[in-house]
Design a binder for these strands. Structure first.
Lengths: 236, 236
DNA sequence: ACCTGAACACCGTTCAAGT
DNA sequence: ACCTGAACACCGTTCAAGT
Protein backbone atom coordinates (compact mmCIF):
# COMPACT_ATOMS: atom_id res chain seq x y z
CA UNK A 1 0.00 0.00 0.00
CA UNK A 2 1.58 3.31 -1.11
CA UNK A 3 0.73 5.93 1.45
CA UNK A 4 1.18 9.53 0.41
CA UNK A 5 3.78 11.15 2.63
CA UNK A 6 3.95 14.79 3.67
CA UNK A 7 3.88 15.93 0.12
CA UNK A 8 7.41 16.97 -0.69
CA UNK A 9 6.84 17.64 -4.38
CA UNK A 10 9.56 16.02 -6.44
CA UNK A 11 11.06 13.51 -4.03
CA UNK A 12 9.33 10.38 -2.84
CA UNK A 13 11.26 8.91 0.07
CA UNK A 14 9.98 5.45 -0.74
CA UNK A 15 11.60 5.41 -4.13
CA UNK A 16 15.09 6.47 -3.12
CA UNK A 17 17.25 9.25 -4.42
CA UNK A 18 18.02 10.21 -7.98
CA UNK A 19 20.12 12.89 -9.58
CA UNK A 20 16.97 14.62 -10.83
CA UNK A 21 15.29 14.58 -7.44
CA UNK A 22 18.40 15.92 -5.76
CA UNK A 23 18.65 18.81 -8.22
CA UNK A 24 14.98 19.68 -7.73
CA UNK A 25 15.36 19.62 -3.97
CA UNK A 26 18.60 21.56 -4.20
CA UNK A 27 17.02 24.33 -6.27
CA UNK A 28 14.07 24.46 -3.89
CA UNK A 29 16.34 24.73 -0.88
CA UNK A 30 18.40 27.51 -2.49
CA UNK A 31 15.19 29.38 -3.28
CA UNK A 32 14.12 29.01 0.31
CA UNK A 33 17.24 29.69 2.38
CA UNK A 34 19.73 31.22 -0.05
CA UNK A 35 23.23 30.12 -1.00
CA UNK A 36 24.88 31.20 2.23
CA UNK A 37 22.77 28.87 4.31
CA UNK A 38 22.61 26.09 1.74
CA UNK A 39 24.54 23.01 2.78
CA UNK A 40 24.71 19.39 1.78
CA UNK A 41 23.83 18.40 5.31
CA UNK A 42 20.69 20.53 5.29
CA UNK A 43 19.72 19.22 1.86
CA UNK A 44 20.19 15.65 3.08
CA UNK A 45 18.06 16.38 6.13
CA UNK A 46 15.25 17.71 3.93
CA UNK A 47 15.41 14.59 1.80
CA UNK A 48 15.49 12.37 4.92
CA UNK A 49 18.76 10.81 4.04
CA UNK A 50 22.32 10.78 5.38
CA UNK A 51 24.66 13.47 3.96
CA UNK A 52 26.94 10.87 2.44
CA UNK A 53 24.06 9.54 0.34
CA UNK A 54 24.21 12.69 -1.81
CA UNK A 55 27.79 11.86 -2.72
CA UNK A 56 26.79 8.69 -4.45
CA UNK A 57 24.91 10.78 -7.06
CA UNK A 58 27.03 13.91 -7.28
CA UNK A 59 30.76 14.01 -6.75
CA UNK A 60 31.10 17.23 -4.83
CA UNK A 61 29.34 20.29 -3.45
CA UNK A 62 30.51 22.48 -6.32
CA UNK A 63 29.44 19.90 -8.88
CA UNK A 64 26.01 19.81 -7.24
CA UNK A 65 25.71 23.59 -7.42
CA UNK A 66 26.85 23.71 -11.03
CA UNK A 67 24.36 21.01 -11.96
CA UNK A 68 21.59 22.83 -10.08
CA UNK A 69 22.30 26.01 -12.01
CA UNK A 70 22.19 24.24 -15.36
CA UNK A 71 19.06 22.39 -14.29
CA UNK A 72 17.47 25.74 -13.60
CA UNK A 73 18.48 27.34 -16.90
CA UNK A 74 18.08 24.34 -19.17
CA UNK A 75 14.49 24.96 -20.22
CA UNK A 76 14.99 28.44 -21.64
CA UNK A 77 14.12 28.61 -25.34
CA UNK A 78 12.22 31.39 -27.08
CA UNK A 79 9.31 30.16 -29.19
CA UNK A 80 9.61 33.09 -31.59
CA UNK A 81 10.44 32.40 -35.22
CA UNK A 82 14.21 32.43 -35.63
CA UNK A 83 14.15 34.42 -38.87
CA UNK A 84 13.42 37.69 -37.03
CA UNK A 85 16.63 37.93 -35.03
CA UNK A 86 15.66 41.07 -33.13
CA UNK A 87 12.39 39.60 -31.93
CA UNK A 88 14.09 36.32 -31.09
CA UNK A 89 16.83 37.94 -29.01
CA UNK A 90 14.32 40.14 -27.21
CA UNK A 91 12.29 37.05 -26.34
CA UNK A 92 15.43 35.26 -25.16
CA UNK A 93 16.48 38.08 -22.85
CA UNK A 94 13.00 38.43 -21.39
CA UNK A 95 12.38 34.73 -20.93
CA UNK A 96 15.74 34.25 -19.25
CA UNK A 97 15.01 37.12 -16.92
CA UNK A 98 11.70 35.57 -15.94
CA UNK A 99 13.47 32.33 -15.02
CA UNK A 100 16.05 34.13 -12.90
CA UNK A 101 13.29 36.18 -11.32
CA UNK A 102 11.75 32.96 -10.06
CA UNK A 103 15.10 31.79 -8.66
CA UNK A 104 17.01 34.96 -7.77
CA UNK A 105 19.24 33.20 -5.26
CA UNK A 106 21.04 31.21 -7.95
CA UNK A 107 22.58 34.31 -9.57
CA UNK A 108 25.91 34.12 -7.72
CA UNK A 109 26.40 30.66 -9.23
CA UNK A 110 26.47 32.11 -12.73
CA UNK A 111 29.91 33.57 -12.10
CA UNK A 112 31.17 31.20 -9.44
CA UNK A 113 30.76 28.19 -11.68
CA UNK A 114 32.12 28.51 -15.17
CA UNK A 115 29.03 27.97 -17.25
CA UNK A 116 30.05 24.90 -19.15
CA UNK A 117 29.51 21.25 -18.48
CA UNK A 118 27.56 18.21 -19.48
CA UNK A 119 24.29 19.78 -18.43
CA UNK A 120 24.54 23.14 -20.19
CA UNK A 121 21.82 24.30 -22.56
CA UNK A 122 23.57 23.46 -25.83
CA UNK A 123 20.29 23.51 -27.73
CA UNK A 124 20.01 27.19 -26.92
CA UNK A 125 23.62 27.75 -27.95
CA UNK A 126 22.98 26.10 -31.30
CA UNK A 127 19.81 28.06 -31.90
CA UNK A 128 21.55 31.30 -31.00
CA UNK A 129 24.22 30.63 -33.60
CA UNK A 130 21.52 29.83 -36.16
CA UNK A 131 19.66 33.05 -35.47
CA UNK A 132 22.80 35.15 -35.69
CA UNK A 133 23.87 33.49 -38.92
CA UNK A 134 20.53 34.05 -40.59
CA UNK A 135 20.76 37.64 -39.40
CA UNK A 136 23.91 37.93 -41.46
CA UNK A 137 26.73 37.62 -38.92
CA UNK A 138 29.74 35.84 -40.43
CA UNK A 139 33.25 34.80 -39.41
CA UNK A 140 34.80 36.66 -36.49
CA UNK A 141 31.73 38.87 -36.15
CA UNK A 142 29.55 35.81 -35.60
CA UNK A 143 31.56 34.65 -32.61
CA UNK A 144 31.77 38.14 -31.14
CA UNK A 145 28.02 38.54 -31.51
CA UNK A 146 27.52 35.16 -29.87
CA UNK A 147 29.60 36.15 -26.83
CA UNK A 148 27.74 39.44 -26.65
CA UNK A 149 24.38 37.65 -26.64
CA UNK A 150 25.48 35.30 -23.84
CA UNK A 151 26.77 38.23 -21.80
CA UNK A 152 23.60 40.19 -22.44
CA UNK A 153 21.46 37.22 -21.43
CA UNK A 154 23.16 36.69 -18.10
CA UNK A 155 25.07 39.88 -17.35
CA UNK A 156 22.24 42.25 -16.51
CA UNK A 157 20.25 39.83 -14.38
CA UNK A 158 23.27 38.73 -12.36
CA UNK A 159 23.80 42.37 -11.44
CA UNK A 160 20.10 43.01 -10.93
CA UNK A 161 19.66 40.07 -8.56
CA UNK A 162 23.08 40.23 -6.88
CA UNK A 163 22.83 38.71 -3.42
CA UNK A 164 22.20 40.64 -0.25
CA UNK A 165 23.76 39.67 3.08
CA UNK A 166 21.67 36.78 4.34
CA UNK A 167 21.42 38.27 7.79
CA UNK A 168 20.91 41.92 8.47
CA UNK A 169 24.22 42.17 10.27
CA UNK A 170 24.27 45.19 12.54
CA UNK A 171 21.53 46.98 10.68
CA UNK A 172 23.09 46.70 7.24
CA UNK A 173 20.22 48.37 5.42
CA UNK A 174 20.33 51.27 7.84
CA UNK A 175 24.05 51.73 7.21
CA UNK A 176 23.49 51.59 3.44
CA UNK A 177 20.72 54.14 3.56
CA UNK A 178 22.81 56.49 5.66
CA UNK A 179 25.81 56.10 3.40
CA UNK A 180 23.90 56.85 0.23
CA UNK A 181 21.83 59.64 1.70
CA UNK A 182 24.92 61.13 3.28
CA UNK A 183 26.76 61.67 -0.01
CA UNK A 184 27.32 65.42 0.11
CA UNK A 185 26.70 67.97 -2.61
CA UNK A 186 30.27 69.22 -2.77
CA UNK A 187 31.96 65.88 -3.38
CA UNK A 188 29.17 64.22 -5.36
CA UNK A 189 27.18 66.97 -7.11
CA UNK A 190 25.55 64.75 -9.74
CA UNK A 191 24.52 62.01 -7.36
CA UNK A 192 23.21 64.70 -5.02
CA UNK A 193 21.13 66.43 -7.71
CA UNK A 194 19.39 63.15 -8.66
CA UNK A 195 19.36 61.62 -5.21
CA UNK A 196 15.61 61.12 -5.07
CA UNK A 197 15.53 59.23 -8.36
CA UNK A 198 18.66 57.19 -7.65
CA UNK A 199 18.46 56.20 -3.99
CA UNK A 200 17.66 52.51 -3.65
CA UNK A 201 16.57 52.49 -7.30
CA UNK A 202 19.74 52.02 -9.35
CA UNK A 203 23.01 50.09 -9.24
CA UNK A 204 25.48 50.75 -6.42
CA UNK A 205 23.11 53.31 -4.83
CA UNK A 206 20.61 50.66 -3.76
CA UNK A 207 20.38 48.26 -0.83
CA UNK A 208 17.65 45.99 -2.11
CA UNK A 209 18.00 43.82 -5.18
CA UNK A 210 15.80 42.85 -8.11
CA UNK A 211 13.86 40.34 -6.04
CA UNK A 212 12.09 43.21 -4.25
CA UNK A 213 12.90 46.11 -6.60
CA UNK A 214 13.09 44.96 -10.23
CA UNK A 215 14.79 47.32 -12.69
CA UNK A 216 12.22 46.91 -15.47
CA UNK A 217 12.88 50.15 -17.30
CA UNK A 218 16.65 49.77 -17.24
CA UNK A 219 16.36 46.16 -18.38
CA UNK A 220 14.24 47.08 -21.38
CA UNK A 221 16.62 49.91 -22.25
CA UNK A 222 19.51 47.45 -22.00
CA UNK A 223 17.78 45.06 -24.39
CA UNK A 224 17.21 47.92 -26.82
CA UNK A 225 20.83 49.05 -26.48
CA UNK A 226 22.24 45.59 -27.16
CA UNK A 227 20.06 44.98 -30.19
CA UNK A 228 20.67 48.39 -31.73
CA UNK A 229 24.38 47.95 -31.04
CA UNK A 230 24.39 44.55 -32.68
CA UNK A 231 22.61 46.06 -35.70
CA UNK A 232 25.48 48.55 -36.01
CA UNK A 233 28.05 45.78 -35.58
CA UNK A 234 26.39 43.81 -38.36
CA UNK A 235 26.71 46.62 -40.91
CA UNK A 236 30.08 47.94 -39.77
CA UNK B 1 65.91 48.49 16.68
CA UNK B 2 63.42 47.80 13.88
CA UNK B 3 64.47 44.66 12.11
CA UNK B 4 62.97 44.03 8.71
CA UNK B 5 60.94 40.82 8.79
CA UNK B 6 60.36 38.41 5.94
CA UNK B 7 59.06 41.12 3.69
CA UNK B 8 55.30 40.67 3.57
CA UNK B 9 54.57 43.83 1.57
CA UNK B 10 51.70 45.69 3.16
CA UNK B 11 51.60 44.26 6.66
CA UNK B 12 54.24 44.83 9.30
CA UNK B 13 53.68 42.47 12.19
CA UNK B 14 55.33 44.89 14.57
CA UNK B 15 52.79 47.60 13.94
CA UNK B 16 49.65 45.54 14.50
CA UNK B 17 46.65 45.06 12.29
CA UNK B 18 44.62 47.67 10.48
CA UNK B 19 41.60 47.54 8.23
CA UNK B 20 43.75 48.59 5.29
CA UNK B 21 46.40 45.94 5.94
CA UNK B 22 43.77 43.25 6.30
CA UNK B 23 42.14 44.17 2.99
CA UNK B 24 45.51 44.16 1.22
CA UNK B 25 46.36 40.76 2.66
CA UNK B 26 42.88 39.49 1.90
CA UNK B 27 43.10 40.50 -1.76
CA UNK B 28 46.55 38.98 -2.00
CA UNK B 29 45.36 35.72 -0.52
CA UNK B 30 42.36 35.56 -2.86
CA UNK B 31 44.68 36.16 -5.80
CA UNK B 32 46.88 33.36 -4.60
CA UNK B 33 44.52 30.59 -3.51
CA UNK B 34 41.11 31.58 -4.90
CA UNK B 35 37.82 32.14 -3.13
CA UNK B 36 37.08 28.48 -2.45
CA UNK B 37 40.20 28.05 -0.36
CA UNK B 38 40.11 31.51 1.17
CA UNK B 39 39.30 31.45 4.87
CA UNK B 40 39.59 33.80 7.78
CA UNK B 41 41.74 31.28 9.58
CA UNK B 42 44.19 31.07 6.69
CA UNK B 43 44.26 34.84 6.37
CA UNK B 44 44.97 35.15 10.10
CA UNK B 45 47.75 32.61 9.81
CA UNK B 46 49.37 34.58 7.01
CA UNK B 47 49.20 37.73 9.08
CA UNK B 48 50.59 35.88 12.13
CA UNK B 49 47.61 36.61 14.26
CA UNK B 50 44.75 34.70 15.86
CA UNK B 51 41.58 34.34 13.75
CA UNK B 52 39.52 36.29 16.23
CA UNK B 53 41.80 39.32 15.80
CA UNK B 54 40.32 39.86 12.33
CA UNK B 55 36.89 40.27 13.89
CA UNK B 56 37.95 43.33 15.80
CA UNK B 57 38.42 45.17 12.48
CA UNK B 58 35.72 43.62 10.30
CA UNK B 59 32.43 42.32 11.58
CA UNK B 60 32.03 39.21 9.47
CA UNK B 61 33.46 37.10 6.70
CA UNK B 62 31.00 38.49 4.15
CA UNK B 63 31.73 42.05 5.23
CA UNK B 64 35.43 41.36 4.77
CA UNK B 65 34.88 40.01 1.28
CA UNK B 66 32.64 42.93 0.29
CA UNK B 67 35.22 45.38 1.59
CA UNK B 68 37.99 43.55 -0.26
CA UNK B 69 36.04 43.79 -3.52
CA UNK B 70 35.46 47.51 -3.10
CA UNK B 71 39.08 47.99 -2.10
CA UNK B 72 40.07 46.30 -5.33
CA UNK B 73 37.75 48.35 -7.54
CA UNK B 74 38.02 51.69 -5.79
CA UNK B 75 40.89 53.15 -7.82
CA UNK B 76 39.25 52.85 -11.23
CA UNK B 77 38.84 56.23 -12.91
CA UNK B 78 39.47 57.03 -16.58
CA UNK B 79 41.76 60.03 -17.10
CA UNK B 80 40.10 60.88 -20.41
CA UNK B 81 38.33 64.22 -20.77
CA UNK B 82 34.68 63.77 -19.75
CA UNK B 83 33.29 65.82 -22.63
CA UNK B 84 33.86 62.99 -25.13
CA UNK B 85 31.49 60.45 -23.66
CA UNK B 86 32.32 57.66 -26.10
CA UNK B 87 36.06 57.89 -25.42
CA UNK B 88 35.43 58.16 -21.70
CA UNK B 89 33.21 55.06 -21.55
CA UNK B 90 35.64 53.09 -23.69
CA UNK B 91 38.44 54.03 -21.30
CA UNK B 92 36.30 53.06 -18.33
CA UNK B 93 35.47 49.62 -19.72
CA UNK B 94 39.08 48.92 -20.64
CA UNK B 95 40.57 50.17 -17.40
CA UNK B 96 38.10 48.18 -15.34
CA UNK B 97 38.92 45.07 -17.32
CA UNK B 98 42.63 45.54 -16.67
CA UNK B 99 41.94 45.70 -12.93
CA UNK B 100 39.85 42.54 -12.99
CA UNK B 101 42.48 40.86 -15.15
CA UNK B 102 44.99 41.41 -12.36
CA UNK B 103 42.57 39.95 -9.78
CA UNK B 104 40.42 37.45 -11.68
CA UNK B 105 39.51 35.48 -8.56
CA UNK B 106 37.43 38.31 -7.14
CA UNK B 107 34.82 38.13 -9.94
CA UNK B 108 32.36 35.88 -8.08
CA UNK B 109 32.16 38.54 -5.39
CA UNK B 110 30.69 41.03 -7.84
CA UNK B 111 27.39 39.15 -7.82
CA UNK B 112 27.58 37.49 -4.43
CA UNK B 113 27.87 40.82 -2.64
CA UNK B 114 25.45 43.50 -3.65
CA UNK B 115 27.75 46.22 -4.89
CA UNK B 116 26.90 48.98 -2.49
CA UNK B 117 28.36 50.01 0.79
CA UNK B 118 30.48 52.55 2.56
CA UNK B 119 33.51 51.65 0.47
CA UNK B 120 32.01 51.77 -3.02
CA UNK B 121 33.53 53.96 -5.72
CA UNK B 122 31.05 56.83 -5.52
CA UNK B 123 33.48 59.18 -7.25
CA UNK B 124 33.21 57.00 -10.31
CA UNK B 125 29.41 56.92 -10.03
CA UNK B 126 29.29 60.70 -9.90
CA UNK B 127 31.65 61.09 -12.84
CA UNK B 128 29.62 58.58 -14.86
CA UNK B 129 26.47 60.61 -14.29
CA UNK B 130 28.32 63.77 -15.30
CA UNK B 131 29.59 62.21 -18.51
CA UNK B 132 26.17 60.88 -19.44
CA UNK B 133 24.50 64.21 -18.73
CA UNK B 134 26.95 66.18 -20.85
CA UNK B 135 26.37 63.56 -23.56
CA UNK B 136 22.72 64.61 -23.51
CA UNK B 137 20.98 61.90 -21.49
CA UNK B 138 18.11 63.34 -19.46
CA UNK B 139 15.40 62.12 -17.10
CA UNK B 140 14.50 58.44 -17.25
CA UNK B 141 17.00 57.88 -20.05
CA UNK B 142 19.82 59.11 -17.86
CA UNK B 143 19.14 56.53 -15.19
CA UNK B 144 18.68 53.73 -17.70
CA UNK B 145 21.95 54.69 -19.38
CA UNK B 146 23.64 54.74 -15.99
CA UNK B 147 22.48 51.20 -15.18
CA UNK B 148 23.58 50.06 -18.62
CA UNK B 149 27.05 51.50 -18.11
CA UNK B 150 27.42 49.76 -14.74
CA UNK B 151 26.25 46.47 -16.23
CA UNK B 152 28.57 46.89 -19.18
CA UNK B 153 31.50 47.69 -16.90
CA UNK B 154 31.09 44.59 -14.76
CA UNK B 155 28.90 42.20 -16.72
CA UNK B 156 31.28 41.07 -19.43
CA UNK B 157 34.30 40.60 -17.21
CA UNK B 158 32.39 38.63 -14.58
CA UNK B 159 31.43 36.20 -17.33
CA UNK B 160 34.88 36.27 -18.90
CA UNK B 161 36.65 35.48 -15.62
CA UNK B 162 33.99 33.21 -14.10
CA UNK B 163 35.64 30.83 -11.68
CA UNK B 164 36.81 27.33 -12.50
CA UNK B 165 36.63 24.46 -10.03
CA UNK B 166 39.57 24.97 -7.70
CA UNK B 167 40.58 21.34 -7.93
CA UNK B 168 40.48 19.34 -11.10
CA UNK B 169 37.93 16.97 -9.67
CA UNK B 170 37.95 13.71 -11.57
CA UNK B 171 39.54 15.18 -14.65
CA UNK B 172 37.08 18.04 -15.07
CA UNK B 173 38.83 19.54 -18.09
CA UNK B 174 38.89 16.17 -19.79
CA UNK B 175 35.16 15.78 -19.24
CA UNK B 176 34.51 19.29 -20.57
CA UNK B 177 36.58 18.70 -23.67
CA UNK B 178 34.82 15.43 -24.37
CA UNK B 179 31.40 16.95 -23.84
CA UNK B 180 32.00 19.87 -26.18
CA UNK B 181 33.80 17.84 -28.80
CA UNK B 182 31.14 15.16 -28.60
CA UNK B 183 28.28 17.47 -29.62
CA UNK B 184 26.99 15.70 -32.71
CA UNK B 185 26.16 17.20 -36.08
CA UNK B 186 22.55 16.07 -36.11
CA UNK B 187 21.50 17.64 -32.83
CA UNK B 188 23.80 20.65 -32.93
CA UNK B 189 24.51 21.49 -36.59
CA UNK B 190 25.65 25.06 -36.02
CA UNK B 191 27.94 24.32 -33.12
CA UNK B 192 29.32 21.41 -35.13
CA UNK B 193 30.02 23.51 -38.19
CA UNK B 194 32.02 26.07 -36.19
CA UNK B 195 33.47 23.65 -33.69
CA UNK B 196 37.09 24.54 -34.39
CA UNK B 197 36.50 28.25 -33.84
CA UNK B 198 34.26 27.80 -30.79
CA UNK B 199 35.83 25.01 -28.75
CA UNK B 200 37.46 26.42 -25.61
CA UNK B 201 37.31 29.87 -27.18
CA UNK B 202 33.81 31.21 -26.47
CA UNK B 203 31.23 31.24 -23.67
CA UNK B 204 29.72 27.95 -22.52
CA UNK B 205 31.86 25.97 -25.00
CA UNK B 206 35.07 26.65 -23.09
CA UNK B 207 36.72 25.10 -20.04
CA UNK B 208 39.31 27.76 -19.33
CA UNK B 209 38.47 31.28 -18.34
CA UNK B 210 39.77 34.74 -19.16
CA UNK B 211 42.75 34.34 -16.85
CA UNK B 212 44.34 31.97 -19.36
CA UNK B 213 42.24 32.67 -22.45
CA UNK B 214 41.15 36.32 -22.62
CA UNK B 215 38.31 37.16 -25.00
CA UNK B 216 39.88 40.33 -26.38
CA UNK B 217 38.02 40.47 -29.68
CA UNK B 218 34.63 39.79 -28.12
CA UNK B 219 35.28 42.35 -25.40
CA UNK B 220 36.11 45.07 -27.91
CA UNK B 221 33.03 44.17 -29.94
CA UNK B 222 30.97 44.36 -26.76
CA UNK B 223 32.31 47.84 -26.00
CA UNK B 224 31.46 48.93 -29.54
CA UNK B 225 27.99 47.40 -29.27
CA UNK B 226 27.20 49.12 -25.99
CA UNK B 227 28.37 52.52 -27.17
CA UNK B 228 26.59 52.34 -30.51
CA UNK B 229 23.48 51.13 -28.71
CA UNK B 230 23.66 54.01 -26.26
CA UNK B 231 24.02 56.40 -29.17
CA UNK B 232 20.76 55.06 -30.58
CA UNK B 233 19.11 55.27 -27.17
CA UNK B 234 20.17 58.90 -26.89
CA UNK B 235 18.47 59.94 -30.12
CA UNK B 236 15.43 57.68 -29.85
C1' DA C 1 41.98 49.74 22.19
C1' DC C 2 43.47 45.59 20.48
C1' DC C 3 44.62 40.84 20.66
C1' DT C 4 44.98 35.91 22.84
C1' DG C 5 43.33 31.41 23.76
C1' DA C 6 39.92 28.32 23.94
C1' DA C 7 35.51 26.84 22.99
C1' DC C 8 30.97 26.00 20.23
C1' DA C 9 28.26 24.69 16.56
C1' DC C 10 28.64 23.87 12.46
C1' DC C 11 30.71 22.36 7.67
C1' DG C 12 32.40 19.02 3.23
C1' DT C 13 34.15 14.70 2.45
C1' DT C 14 35.82 9.86 3.15
C1' DC C 15 35.25 5.18 4.15
C1' DA C 16 34.13 0.86 6.05
C1' DA C 17 30.11 -1.44 6.69
C1' DG C 18 25.54 -2.74 5.82
C1' DT C 19 21.48 -4.21 2.54
C1' DA D 1 23.76 -0.46 -6.68
C1' DC D 2 22.71 2.45 -3.11
C1' DC D 3 22.69 4.00 1.51
C1' DT D 4 24.10 4.06 6.72
C1' DG D 5 26.88 5.45 10.51
C1' DA D 6 30.75 7.28 12.22
C1' DA D 7 34.82 9.67 11.80
C1' DC D 8 38.31 13.44 10.17
C1' DA D 9 39.90 17.81 9.24
C1' DC D 10 38.41 21.69 8.69
C1' DC D 11 35.29 26.11 9.07
C1' DG D 12 33.02 31.04 11.05
C1' DT D 13 32.09 33.17 15.15
C1' DT D 14 31.80 34.21 20.19
C1' DC D 15 33.62 35.37 24.50
C1' DA D 16 36.18 35.70 28.60
C1' DA D 17 40.61 36.92 29.58
C1' DG D 18 44.81 39.24 28.99
C1' DT D 19 47.80 43.59 27.89
Amino acid sequence: VRTVKRGRPSYDSERGLSREAILDASLGLIDEVGLDKFSIRLLAQRMRVFPAAIYWHLSTRNALLAATLNHCLSDTMPNTEPDDWKAWLTALFRENRRVVQRHPNITPLITSQLLSNAGANFKLVDRTLEVLETAGFKGAKLFAAYDIVITATLGFVTMEFAALPSEDTKGWTKLMRQTVEGLDEKSYPHIHRHKAALTNKHFILRWENGATLPLDASFEAYVYTIIEGLRQLLTR
